[in-house]
């Protein structure tokens, strides 16, 4: 084949592939927004109405239990995993640990990040079996915490690593302790850290596999830490194949809520990172 023909074919292929990816995005978001939007418009109150007693059969009431459940699972989980993640990431900086340790720990964190969420679910479930407890809000929080921990740690570690050595040296030069120095460094790395926490939250709120057995997928309002709960992704998963059109339409509406939330979070994380970045030398960090 002529070299220039090959060039033209390659140009075309490269553009076609990109067009396919964009078309798929439009399709997925579009279908979700249209179907979900239609269901929501028909009855907007379902988002804030608790489920009725025959909810799974005919969609009586709404899915407030899942909205609350999502917040009650992912909110506390994000707080706990953020505290753990920032602490771990701090230890991985050269102030505390050797390069070698950090390298190995990062290797393990990357692998944890790549671990299928269902494995975290099975892990927490195994512990629950051992402890003789049933599915509960607490177990859901625990599994999402384990799921988010490597994600937020990797972001925080990268953000802390991007803080200049000079900043730390200056702070040490003032007679600050390691703890005081790392606090200054964390402040300088804040955009990256915040972006990481938001990413962790977004991932956590969208995941179903980790919480499917651990939180329980209940059809009642969350009743307490040790009571079963459900989340939006679980609700979508369970109701998407329902024979009742009303129940199915709740799954569509829930995905509308979910996709809008997640995309807004991602957008916010980007904007925040950009806004904070104005205060850090070297500009935008992600």
């Amino acid at each position: 084949m002529d070299r220039y023909t090959e060039q033209r074919i390659a140009d075309g292929l490269v553009r076609a592939a990109t067009a396919i990816v964009l078309a798929v995005l439009v399709l997925v978001v579009g279908v979700t927004l249209v179907r979900g939007g239609r269901a929501l418009l028909a009855n907007p109150a379902i988002v804030v109405t608790p489920p009725g007693s025959t909810y799974m059969l005919d969609g009586a009431g709404g899915f407030l239990h899942a909205v609350l459940g999502s917040l009650l699972v992912v909110g506390p989980a994000t707080v706990i995993s953020t505290v753990l993640a920032i602490s771990t990431a701090t230890y991985l900086q050269s102030d505390y640990s050797s390069e070698r340790f950090a390298e190995y720990a990062n290797l393990f964190l990357n692998v944890l990040w790549g671990t299928p969420p269902i494995v975290y679910g099975v892990f927490v479930l195994t512990i629950m079996i051992g402890a003789g407890t049933r599915a509960s809000l607490l177990a859901g929080i625990l599994s999402i915490t384990v799921f988010q921990y490597p994600i937020i740690t990797r972001y925080t570690d990268e953000a802390l690593r991007s803080v200049s050595t000079e900043l730390k040296e200056t702070t040490y030069g003032l007679g600050a302790t390691r703890f005081e120095t790392i606090r200054v460094a964390t402040r300088a790395a804040l955009p990256g850290v915040v972006a990481g926490v938001i990413m962790g939250f977004a991932r956590g709120i969208g995941d179903a596999a980790t919480v499917l057995f651990t939180a329980g997928g209940s059809t009642a309002m969350p009743g307490g830490l040790l009571e079963p709960a459900t989340t939006l992704p679980i609700l979508i998963f369970q109701q998407a194949t329902s024979f009742n059109a009303e129940v199915r339409s709740h799954a569509y509406a829930a995905s509308f809520v979910l996709i809008v939330t997640v995309l807004a979070l991602i957008g916010a994380s980007k904007l925040l990172a950009g806004r904070f970045a104005r205060y850090t030398p070297g500009g935008q960090s992600e």
């Binding site: 969208g206 596999a209 979508i236 998963f237 998407a240 995905s255 979910l258 997640v262 995309l263 979070l265």
Partner: peptide
């Protein structure tokens, strides 16, 4: 960033 369950639904 779109959750897997949304892909499943679509």
């Amino acid at each position: 960033a779109i959750p897997g369950v949304v892909f499943g639904l679509v």
